[in-house]
Design a protein around this nucleic acid. Structure first.
Lengths: 121, 121
DNA sequence: CTCATAATTAACTAGATAGTTAATTAACGA
DNA sequence: TCGTTAATTAACTATCTAGTTAATTATGAG
């Protein structure tokens, strides 16, 4: 991995981290506040690591306030995901009719020029 | 991991797999057609595995047609991602004003009841 | 039947990820 | 200054991931 979108999706691929984002969508929270619902399941260092993953992914920013580390959602990464999703809108929007129509506009049963990989059927 | 959304995000966290989806968004393709742009970088078994990841994530379905395995995009997983994203719309939509307004509606500098975790400042 | 192509499976490896416990750093309050 | 709380770092481990090569299965073409 390494590219920014991959980092972001990887960060989202964990229920603990998604729950943290859900919490942060309600407002800022420092590390122990974020940790609180999970401390029955995992240690504080584990939480620290999850937050680091969210930061590296650009989904969260953390600041310094005395001994606290208030975290908040960073819009940029969400925008990146939303932008990427745009190209698939046709697939996740309700209308099946429009999908059918769309699928007829692209690659009308392409023959694969060199006829090497031609799809027979 | 294990939950469906985590599987889906994990599948999206790879540029090869995202490129495959982009290809499939233009229309069906069988395994070797999907593989073609990547064979200079990786082997066919690696491709097979990537496709399996996309299938398990529900992003792609594969069928059988003679010796070919035509793949196509499966809408469901995209819908799931889009639905999940909905709750963060306020963050990825352009309007900063509306975000400010929103943030004032939730958690008005909560005091953390037991005063144990009170955010000082 | 035999060969070539499509695709998968098996077995293995390097490196990443997610967690642990123990120790450390920093700031506040008394 | 001393104890407490907030948070991180270090060191380690188990499991997962992404790739490899070699072998195998299945189909259609001649």
């Amino acid at each position: 991995m390494q590219d920014s979108l991959s980092l972001t999706f990887a960060a989202l691929a964990d229920p603990t981290r998604r729950a943290m984002l859900a919490r942060l969508s309600k407002g800022e929270a420092n590390v122990s506040q974020l940790a609180e619902p999970f401390l029955k399941d995992m240690s504080l260092p584990a939480i620290t690591k999850h937050i680091k993953v969210l930061e590296k992914a650009g989904l969260v920013t953390k600041s310094v306030e005395a001994q606290y580390r208030p975290c908040k959602i960073n819009q940029e990464a969400f925008k990146d995901v939303a932008d990427w999703m745009e190209q698939y809108r046709i697939f996740w929007e309700e209308s099946f009719d429009r999908l059918d129509a769309y699928l007829k506009t692209v690659v009308p049963k392409k023959k694969a020029k060199g006829k090497k990989h031609a799809v027979k059927k």
